[in-house]
């Protein structure tokens, strides 16, 4: 088949564009450390019986020198912790979120950031991040979860490490 040389250029550029877009995403994943949320390796949990799990006592636990774990329950129509009283964390620490739901599908999006995951009953959505500066972030539910979905919101308060009150931490189970 005879192909005109201009058409060869266009075909080549199209393939190059696909390669560049794919390459940028791989570069972001590997070099910039931009990952996607996952689910816990421990498998599923019984959403009707969170009292038997780490989610019986939602809150922040210290797991290392500068590492914290947040166990958060998203339920109709609040984040626990987060709604009512802000979730407080120190700036610069590695924080791993574990989020689950006892009722229906929810979502969590920390406004103005790339922190975003679905929260599925029975599964534990897990992601790790670092909040570099002391400031307050809002978080919202972004999966329709019922008539008061639009009121489901919370706050994350990032404080300087020196001001972080460790007495609010939960003890490990």
């Amino acid at each position: 088949m005879h192909i005109h040389r201009f058409e060869k250029i266009w075909i080549g550029l199209s393939l190059f564009l696909i390669a560049v877009c794919t390459g940028i995403v791989i570069y972001g994943f590997v070099a910039l450390d931009l990952k996607v949320p996952g689910i816990a390796d421990s498998g599923t949990i019984d959403p009707m019986n969170l009292a038997e799990t780490e989610f019986a006592q939602p809150g922040v636990r210290k797991v290392g020198e500068n590492e914290y774990e947040v166990y958060m329950v998203a339920r109709q129509f609040l984040f626990l912790p987060g709604t009512g009283r802000p979730l407080t964390l120190p700036a610069g620490a590695e924080v791993t979120f574990h989020v689950t739901s006892p009722d229906v599908l929810h979502g969590i999006h920390v406004s103005g950031t790339n922190l975003n995951t679905m929260v599925i009953p029975g599964q534990v959505a897990t992601f790790k991040t670092v909040f570099p500066e002391a400031r307050t972030y809002g978080m919202i539910c972004h999966e329709y979860c019922g008539p008061a979905h639009h009121t489901m919101e919370g706050l994350i308060e990032i404080v300087p490490p020196s001001e972080f009150d460790e007495t609010t931490l939960l003890t490990s189970r």
């Binding site: 450390d33 931009l34 990952k35 996607v36 949320p37 791993t96 920390v110 103005g112 950031t113 790339n114 922190l115 995951t117 992601f127 790790k128 991040t129 670092v130 909040f131 570099p132």
Partner: peptide, 8 residues
Amino acid sequence: GNGPSIIN
């Protein structure tokens, strides 16, 4: 540039 992002 819209950090913080998910790092793991």
